[in-house]
Design a protein around this nucleic acid. Sequence first.
DNA 1: AACCAGGAGACAT
DNA 2: ATGTCTCATGGT
Length: 230
Amino acid sequence: MKQQTGDWTWLHQQLLAHWGAQHWWPAETSFEVMVGAILTQNTAWTNVEKAIARLRAAELLSVPAILASGEMELETCLHPSGYYRVKTRRLRALCAFLREEGCADLPESLRDKGTIPELRAKLLRVHGVGEETADSILLYALHLPIMVVDAYTKRIATRLGWIADNVKYASLQRAIESTLSPGDVAARNELHALLVELGKGTCRPRRPLCRQCPLVEGCDFGRTQECPGN
DNA sequence: AACCAGGAGACAT
DNA sequence: ATGTCTCATGGT
């Protein structure tokens, strides 16, 4: 019997055994991770890739280049990722922030501009950066030990009966954090990436019953009707 | 042809 | 404080 908050360690082990290490985030530079974090908001990653490819082709994958670019030029690059007008504004806001912090030509140096809580607070003040985006930047761009919670994480935990469907971000984050060793960046990186993999695979929002749970052996999701592989 | 995707901000209640 | 609406493209 699992505890009320859920056995995240067990889940992590199951997912790791099934898919192996994910080695996220798929990007070449820290800045590219930050850009991706904005562009992937409520958007399929395949669409984000197209937008990033356009940015690269236009040589707009740097803070100075984006801040110097024209409105229409940037919108054209972001178009395939959806919400392109909103995201143009958000991406500019992030770049303006990085410049203010003195990180324009070395975005990963943001890491040295404060403690984790301080950096998180700073990021949350940036227009277009919410909790998940802030944590994604902290973990995947700055390699700081903080757990990212997303829609998949919430859905999976809900269907396992580990949390109520109305839990807040911070609450779920604390629950997972409490099961991880404090400074373990790699564990947080892998766990979130694996949860996305599980979510992307077969865990669709409005499908109540389990079809093909990707966790074959040792998986007791299927015994209940809250299988995350629904 | 609807449904969905690695959210966040504005706004009303 | 807590819901609801809007933003938009591309794949299934």
